[in-house]
């Protein structure tokens, strides 16, 4: 469905010594999947999203969607993709129906065909009764739903979404994921960016981006399997000295995440944790043992924490 090859992007006004926003990124997205672009803020996922939506032209590399080069066949590609931005792209002064009608016109739909399409979408989105209400009177969750319907107006087989649950409360997030799953069942491929681990878990496949580079590509479960064993996190007052002691006494490879946190990946973590507490009990503020999470995958691949700004 999507083929990305050696894609790089540098912002036009960035100084020459500044890091590239995307550097030599290559991967494919298979049909009929929910594909996640996971990364911390500034990781490059939104830049990639903007290139996929034909908003930005890449500095180098190529992207094919449906076998079409998106920069040579831009207009054809645009007709086939649905795009949902981080902030709803709705006109708040217009009603739900007017927004959908307007979007239909931009995609060459009109008359009875458009009316029927809107009716179907409103039914599917559970918004039939709100059709004539102005967007400004709807809740954030509902506005998001209208935005998705807007992106679906021309029945695209690929939907690109930037942080789909941005600004939504937990209940609305769950409802939104239900909609996405339904869309997938109906044959739509969905590519979405996210910086939330719990959302990334729900994707069929993940591309993890960090500092503009692709650091991992697999399903969430396979990515976690790559770590193997358990993950132990130790909170201490002086992580650097503890790291050295662990190396001396147990010949343990540890990762220093910050001045107070050590990260250990180890099989049979239960046995190790008991020994650690017995040996370094006084130096340890807290210690935890868990199965690998996507956060651990990120640490494993990049050697540092997944910094996220709270919403």
């Amino acid at each position: 469905m999507i083929r990305i090859q050696s894609l790089s992007y540098q912002y036009p006004h960035a100084s020459s010594n500044k890091k590239m926003a995307l550097e030599n990124v290559s991967f494919n997205v298979e049909k009929n999947t929910i594909f996640g672009l996971l990364g911390p803020n500034g990781g490059g996922k939104t830049t990639l999203f903007k290139i996929l939506t034909t908003f930005f032209l890449p500095t180098s590399g190529s992207v094919e969607i449906f076998g079409l080069d998106i920069f040579k066949k831009m207009s054809e590609v645009r007709k086939k993709i649905g795009v949902i931005f981080q902030n709803p792209s709705l006109d708040k002064k217009l009603s739900v129906k007017e927004n959908l009608t307007h979007q239909g016109h931009l995609y060459g739909l009109s008359g009875l065909e458009l009316k029927e399409r809107i009716l179907l979408l409103l039914l599917q989105g559970g918004l039939l009764e709100r059709a004539n209400e102005r967007i400004e009177t709807l809740s954030g969750g509902m506005q998001r739903r209208v935005d998705i319907l807007k992106g679906m107006i021309h029945n695209p087989s690929l939907l690109l979404m930037d942080e789909p649950t941005f600004g939504l409360d937990p209940a609305a997030r769950i409802a939104l994921w239900e909609i996405l799953k339904k869309l997938k069942q109906n044959g739509t491929t969905i590519v979405c960016t996210t910086h939330l681990m719990e959302e990334a878990e729900k994707c069929d496949c993940l591309a993890i981006l960090n500092e503009g580079k692709l650091v991992a590509l697999n399903s969430p479960s396979n990515l976690k399997k790559e770590i193997g064993g358990d993950v132990i996190a130790i909170e201490t007052n002086n992580a650097t000295s503890l790291k050295e002691e662990l190396k001396k006494k147990f010949n343990l490879q540890t990762m220093l995440l910050d001045e107070q946190t050590l990260h250990i990946e180890k099989e049979k973590g239960v046995e190790l944790i008991t020994e650690l507490i017995q040996t370094f009990g006084e130096k340890i503020i807290s210690i935890s043992l868990s199965k690998p999470s996507l956060e651990d995958v990120f640490i494993h691949k990049t050697g540092h924490k997944f910094h996220t700004n709270s919403r």
């Binding site: 939506t53 034909t54 908003f55 207009s75 054809e76 645009r78 007709k79 795009v83 931005f85 981080q86 902030n87 709803p88 792209s89 709705l90 006109d91 708040k92 979007q103 931009l106 995609y107 060459g108 807007k150």
Partner: peptide, 13 residues
């Protein structure tokens, strides 16, 4: 600013 223009710009018109 609202994002409305983005959706117009990336439409096939």
């Amino acid at each position: 600013k609202d994002g409305f223009l983005q959706s117009v710009i990336i439409s096939p018109i």
